[in-house]
Design a protein around this nucleic acid. Structure first.
Lengths: 149, 149
DNA sequence: ATTCTTAATTGAACAATATTCGACTTTTAG
DNA sequence: CTAAAAGTCGAATATTGTTCAATTAAGAAT
């Protein structure tokens, strides 16, 4: 047994997919070469960033989902990008936004369960520059990544 | 001119993509039939929901991004699913979660600009059952859909 | 341990799809 | 109105996905 699954999931999370030109052509009732031409243009212009898989996160050990509202400490207040970009490398984090309002950063996090979340909050999110966090735990996801669940 | 682009974007947003078996096989240094077998299993088990494109949302008229914290009115308080599922059909909404804490629903919305957001908030999100909303406007996205920007 | 059953891996043959090319058409700018 | 650029599309080719059958590995039961 080669344990292909986790490596596969790792790649499909962030790319290694491609549009189905023939299927799209059929659906739109246009020649596949026309579809091909238009897709390449979208890619060259950077309109399409990449193609990737959307998972049932419960099945890949990421069934616990949570929004994290973050306050930065006065010293880091003017520099949310540094902390945000460093957090970006964690695959548990779906999104990071620098926001207006009462919190400087808004994160969306996926981990296995509540225990894993506690550890993640303690070990990864809490750090120098992060003053306070507020967690909004998702009971149920109705839509995610533009896809209704 | 056939105006292929918007129709194409519409399809690629929610599917019409597929994994690149040959590329994955090369990357993982495994035979492509082995990769094929493992991918089909992920699909059959429902671990992979679908394959889709991730866009530069500024380039598809959705450059304005915002989190919306929603309070439901007392009458709807016990039934966040009805409102959430109805909202799910709008393609401007990236995600909808039923949450713990001070707000029953958390939405993430992408529209063209601030004016469009005002209209969307007024015409779509505000409705019977929605008592109050709080908007956290994203100044800058550092990560989105698990992909660093 | 040994057998049996099921799951996983793999190469070869085949089917389907993507890509290139060139001709033609449409759009745009001056 | 004209020339250049962008878009459409069929035919040929290159690449990739899929099926199949054989082989190996893993797990369960006696």
């Amino acid at each position: 047994m080669k344990n292909i699954r986790p490596r596969l999931v790792g790649l499909l999370r962030q790319g290694y997919c491609t549009p189905q030109i023939a299927q799209i052509a059929k659906q739109l009732k246009e020649p596949s070469t026309t579809i091909h031409y238009n897709i390449k243009r979208l890619e060259e212009e950077g309109t399409v960033r990449l193609y990737k898989a959307v998972f049932d996160y419960k099945q890949i050990e990421q069934g616990f989902c949570c929004y994290v509202l973050v306050n930065l400490s006065p010293g880091e207040y003017g520099n949310p990008e540094r902390i945000g970009k460093d957090l970006a490398k964690y695959q548990e984090i779906e999104s990071i936004d620098i926001c207006t309002g009462d919190w400087e950063l808004v994160l969306k996090v996926h981990v296995k369960d509540q225990d894993a979340y506690f550890e993640f909050l303690k070990n990864v999110i809490s750090r120098k520059g992060v003053e306070r966090t507020k967690s909004l735990v998702s009971f149920k996801q109705l839509k995610s990544e533009f896809v209704p669940v």
